[in-house]
Amino acid sequence: MDIQKKQKDILGSLFINSIRVLFAILVIVLFLLIGKIVLEGIGMISFEFIFDEPKNNMTEGGIGPAIFGTIAVTIIMVAMAVPLGVFSAIYLSEYAKDSFFYRIIRTSINNLAGIPSIVFGLFGLGFFILFVGKNLDNVLETGLLFGQPALLWASSTLAVLVLPIVIVSTLEALTSVPKSHRDASYGMGASKWQTIKNVVLPQARPGILTGTILAVSRGVGETAPILFLGCAFFLPNLPIVDLCIGDYCIPMINPTEQFMYLAYHIFILATQSSNPTKTLPLQYGATLVLIGLTILLNITAIIFRYKFRKSLGRN
């Protein structure tokens, strides 16, 4: 008996300690990675670096247009992916019956999440630019406006890329709303839509935001899907157009322009530059900004999520 117990104790502590070691390795790798980038990149961060355009054959200057492009693409991506994803999830969880068709949709969503991102890039080129864009141009007689690589199509493609993430996390949030709460709502004479709008969705909001956070982080870091979709090598002018109503003009993101993208810019600096060693500090700086931007976007969403959770009365 005693020997058996001792063996079990040893096995147990061995197990726990090996988990500790693995955990330590993970943390160390993460710290090394981020630490290196922070140490090398922090010196680059300055007002000029953040806001200026690249200069002198991209060996000097800043990354302003790339930051702007990244934020612009992300905003449009979220504006497309989140409503589409949330409504898809509502349909799947609240309205669709468990049928053959339903299972095909579910399987497709899961498979969509596993497709390599470069395939999305080619899909975006083929579908959005050559099919949707070209036909829009023909129908609207706008000349060559939509049928070329542009911010709009890059955002659309990234939206399709992150759609499964939004759908799956929203679905999980919706199905975790207790049946008893739906019963309470129906029991008071609420219609199906009223129940979804007043009971289910408010409780699912934190989950939907989690999906949005994940989607944003994924989208900001992607390079491959937007390679063919209007992501420019060097484009100092921001994709902005003045939207004028009478005398009032508001600068708006111009979705038909090309743009610079932070992740792509880092790739360019590292591989396509005339002098990669000279651009090394720029690469570190840009990487640090990219990581910082992702964290910033995440923190914003996390704050929102915290507020929603608090309004639900549980933390």
């Binding site: 709460h181 019963d183 309470a184 709502s185 009971v199 408010p202 409780q203 639900l312 009365g313 549980r314």
Partner: peptide, 10 residues
């Protein structure tokens, strides 16, 4: 209902 099913609201 059998169990209280108040909504997580005020």
């Amino acid at each position: 209902f059998q169990k209280s099913n108040l909504f997580p609201k005020s």
